[in-house]
Design a protein around this nucleic acid. Sequence first.
DNA 1: GTCTATATACAGATAGAC
DNA 2: GTCTATCTGTATATAGAC
Lengths: 188, 188
Amino acid sequence: MADKRTELQTLAQAIVQRSGLHELSFRQLAERTGVKSSSVHYYFPEKHDLTAVLISSYSEAFAQRLAAIDAQPGSLRRKLSGFVDLFEQAAQDDKLCLCGMLAAEISSLDERCRGLLSGFFRQAELWLARILEQHQGEVLSPLPPGRLAAVLMSGLEGALLLDRVHGAGAHLQAQRQLIDSFATGAPS
Amino acid sequence: MADKRTELQTLAQAIVQRSGLHELSFRQLAERTGVKSSSVHYYFPEKHDLTAVLISSYSEAFAQRLAAIDAQPGSLRRKLSGFVDLFEQAAQDDKLCLCGMLAAEISSLDERCRGLLSGFFRQAELWLARILEQHQGEVLSPLPPGRLAAVLMSGLEGALLLDRVHGAGAHLQAQRQLIDSFATGAPS
DNA sequence: GTCTATATACAGATAGAC
DNA sequence: GTCTATCTGTATATAGAC
């Protein structure tokens, strides 16, 4: 681990993705990284500060992965499959999307964090809508790109949620089949 | 309110649907119903007991609404629209589905509650799959009923989640459009 | 940067009087 | 059934020494 701040942040993110913001405590964070809770407050004065950093860095990492998908050419189906892979990675670690988890806990977030959260979803859906528009010839659906983007984002966040309760990956798999049903493997 | 137990249960359900299990405390529950927290423990000895009752009664009420949809004949599109209405009602109250919320908080549930939660989703998806199968002539989708049921359930739970953050009902609306795109209004 | 020590608040839960 | 009173644990957060 590069430094203590990064170590704390990485652990905090994993805890939120697995168990939620309420299971994240400065004490636990301290114990599991070998410092005292007051030291955690040195890096992140208040819990809202830590939360905001988590959302920001998660959004940034997500954006980079989207850029990586953009970088190499491919069909719509291939690109959307790459998008689903981002969620699959979380699922296989028994995690939710950080922002999906925080969306459920929105009543505990301050205004700043709510804005960052909203930004994450806007970013993801704008990316999806743009991809769908760029490959419109490969879309076998009457839904306009923005609507289809909303369907996919809801579906993927919901699939992560439900697969932890029930179904052993079946919900994410069903989302893949939905995509295959409207995205042809045709020329880019 | 019929009796204190019912009053407590009703309030508890609303708190969980709006803010989650962690925001539900025996103290708050007591204050807002005019008793002391020890009285709440009289009705629900432990928090897990209250949680289990909430899930059970929510599942039961949900099943009754599904039966009401079954009761009056109609096209697939009409029935699925009635299903979405159940989620729409929660959304307009700024609530999530109780079980969607608890799915996010699964790490805080005991085994009994997890089983009840799983039962809720199984029930909902089996109903959807049955409806899709009964109206298979009206389904314009290559996905088998079970898969389509999983897609819809994920999508609706996710839509409730995302609409609270971002979009003012757009995600639920997009789910309705998805349904309209594959469910013909054809004869029942 | 990390520590000790502490303030303050609130959580779930129980004992026992009435 | 409802109360008072209390136990115990944990949370966020801060002051100030080193």
